[in-house]
């Protein structure tokens, strides 16, 4: 039963190193508006950790997106993500504000942070949801793939807040404008004086290949699996992708065999993508992979095994040799 002590929907607004709001926040926000309506207009709040005097820069974004309240912490010590600092401040804030739902983007940072908060609050956390809804009792019904994507499970939480994480690219953003007056509430960070951050960042190296971001926003993804056999197969895949204007992705077996970096792994334990076109090359179509790409608008599969399960979910299935087809396509 809903607990009247807990109201509203709280979202984590993760700031990136380049000091912009991570896109997954806007995806969560759009879903939050839908949930808020079903809850009879629940208040939507955002939580932000920022460097000193930087929150003003985000005012417009929050106002136009219909966020009622922004709770923010400004402190030099919060410039870089720290599990210990962030989770402590966040936990204290949740105990004070008491939202009924708390949503966090399943970025690496979000997945590091969320279970610390849920454990500290003795509440439940459902990871990597693909759908969020309010059930007939007014509770958060969080649906996620389980067992490698074979099954979907709808999970409920007995305690408050009901917490969930959602991966980037799972919810669509339609850029609806709301125009509300957002209340900015600065929170005290003096508790950090009594805490120690044990994990010291010595160095940060931005990934040279921009594939991480590109893959997230790509219109065309060209992904390879073990059917490409070796490095040569992936070189051809790269050229093929370049010709089409797509970004290269890979399956977990291909990544495990060193054919591609983990940063481009698609599927369970990798990324979720939703491009307009997804071209699966030499990919058998294990659910562990398809769970990360089945939201693509159009799926094309190239595989020489006519019985490969990938053909069951491909809009266009081409039975044939990837090497011959890709080579011809490049020469076209």
């Amino acid at each position: 039963m809903p607990n009247s002590e807990y109201t509203g929907i709280m979202l984590y607004a993760q700031l990136t190193r380049e000091n912009y709001i991570h896109t997954v926040f806007f995806e969560l926000l759009e879903k939050a508006h839908e949930l808020s309506q079903k809850l009879g207009g629940a208040e939507i709040s955002a939580v932000c950790f920022a460097s000193p005097d930087s929150i003003e820069g985000f005012r417009g974004a929050f106002e136009n997106m219909g966020v009622n309240k922004v709770y923010y912490f400004e402190d030099k010590r919060l410039q870089n993500y720290s599990t210990e600092y962030y989770s402590k401040l966040f936990t204290n804030l949740v105990n004070e504000v008491k939202p009924e739902i708390l949503l966090i983007g399943a970025t690496n940072q979000g997945r590091d942070l969320a279970p610390r908060i849920s454990s500290a609050l003795h509440t439940g956390l459902t990871a990597d949801c693909i759908e969020l809804d309010i059930n007939e009792k007014g509770l958060l019904a969080a649906t996620r793939p389980t067992f490698g994507g074979e099954l979907m499970a709808t999970i409920l939480c007995k305690n408050y807040p009901q917490m969930a994480t959602v991966r980037p690219n799972v919810f669509k953003v339609h850029n609806v404008n709301y125009h509300v007056n957002t209340e900015f509430i600065k929170k005290d960070t003096s508790i950090l004086d009594s805490l120690t951050n044990h994990v010291e960042i010595l160095e940060f190296k931005k990934t040279v290949e921009n594939e991480i971001n590109n893959l997230d926003n790509a219109d065309i993804v060209v992904a390879g699996g073990m059917g490409l056999k070796n490095e040569k197969g992936f070189e051809l895949l790269q050229k093929f992708a370049h010709k089409i204007g797509g970004i290269v992705g890979a399956t977990r077996p291909a990544v495990e065999n060193g054919l591609a970096p983990h940063s481009v792994q698609i599927g369970q334990t990798g990324k979720t993508v939703r491009p307009k076109i997804y071209i699966a090359c030499g990919i058998s179509g294990a659910v562990q992979h398809t769970v990360g790409m089945d939201k693509a608008e159009h799926i094309i599969a190239i595989n020489n095994d006519p019985n490969a399960p990938i053909f069951d979910i491909a809009d266009t299935g081409i039975v044939g040799d990837f090497f011959e087809i890709a080579q011809k396509y490049i020469e076209m």
Binding site: N135, E150, M152, A153, L156, I299, P306, I313
Partner: peptide
């Protein structure tokens, strides 16, 4: 604190069309 209220099979909504063609046609 969490429990599974319902579990169901993951169904695809892509319309599977399969073609076996020559390389040029492919």
């Amino acid at each position: 604190p969490t429990y599974v209220s319902k579990a169901f099979r993951n169904m695809s909504n892509h319309n599977a069309q399969k073609f076996e063609l020559s390389t040029d046609e492919s």
